[in-house]
């Protein structure tokens, strides 16, 4: 089975600081929805940024779909992996549609840079907007949206980018429970219907086990444990790294694991 994303002895270090990251070795199978958990400063965002080649590892190799990311051009890479950040702001009044269209950048040839109006681009943009339910406010300025609306637009931009791998960094951190649920179900649907591979950093241990197929637990720049949500969430390592106890429950309907405050 192909890996969507794989790490081979990946190390990273910020400048001359002694805090080291890694070595990390592991793979995420194509078509799986993996949650990345761990306390603040564990290295979740660093792992995502390394996976999108925004940071370059000091040692080791990262591959997207079995091709080393270091050998890709920016547009080759951007056609394989997209990133949904926790939030994004701009001083300029781009409309929602213009932001979503930016997701197409790596698909434009020189002529389309002046007029990206081909059918394929139009379709990719409108499908992405429909899937995320942002069509209704497509002409509004992006900077005037609420947190929940903005987050759906950022997902729409990633969908317009049309990559087989998506990296999400705390995508529901600013969303209310209703919007958070819709967002996570949308991502789950992308994995099941379109066979996308997703790696999502997430804080809420009551929710993450309900949606993800597997979890990676990080602490101090290391991946301590990987496995299905039942195994990882029931490990004693969880209480150690978060420095708090949890109540273990399984969801009354789906019987999936949830951790709550004691």
């Amino acid at each position: 089975m192909t890996s969507g994303l794989s790490f081979n002895q990946v190390k990273f270090r910020w400048g001359k600081q002694s805090d080291t990251f890694g070595p990390i070795t592991g793979r995420i199978a194509q078509g799986s929805f993996v949650g990345l958990i761990g306390p603040n400063g564990a290295g979740k965002s660093t792992l995502l940024r390394l996976s999108a080649a925004y940071l370059k590892p000091t040692a080791g190799e990262i591959s997207l779909f079995d091709r080393p990311i270091a050998q890709m051009t920016p547009s080759q890479r951007a056609r394989l992996v997209s990133v949904v950040p926790q939030s994004l702001s701009t001083n300029f009044d781009l409309t929602v549609e213009e932001v979503v269209e930016l997701g197409r950048l790596s698909h434009l040839n020189l002529r389309q840079r002046f007029a990206p109006v081909t059918l394929a681009h139009r379709q990719a943009v409108s499908q992405a907007m429909e899937a995320t339910g942002v069509v209704a406010f497509s002409r509004r300025p992006f900077s005037a949206l609420s947190g929940g609306e903005a987050q759906r637009v950022l997902l729409a931009m990633a969908l317009a980018q049309n990559t087989p791998l998506l990296l999400l960094d705390e995508p529901t951190a600013h969303l209310d429970p209703g919007h958070a649920r819709h967002f996570l179900e949308l991502v789950q649907e992308l994995v099941y219907r379109q066979h996308k591979t997703v790696l999502m950093a997430y804080h809420d241990l009551a929710t993450v086990g309900l949606y993800c197929d597997a979890l990676w637990l990080m602490h101090q720049g290391q991946v301590l444990m990987t496995g299905n949500p039942e195994t990882v969430l029931s490990s004693p390592l969880i209480s150690q790294v978060y420095e708090t106890g949890f109540v273990h429950l399984s969801h009354p309907r789906s019987h999936k694991p949830m951790l709550l405050f004691p």
Binding site: P74, A78, L88, Q161
Partner: peptide, 11 residues
Amino acid sequence: LLGDEQAHHIG
């Protein structure tokens, strides 16, 4: 306009 990091991510 979306920031340098997001510009990197979209290619």
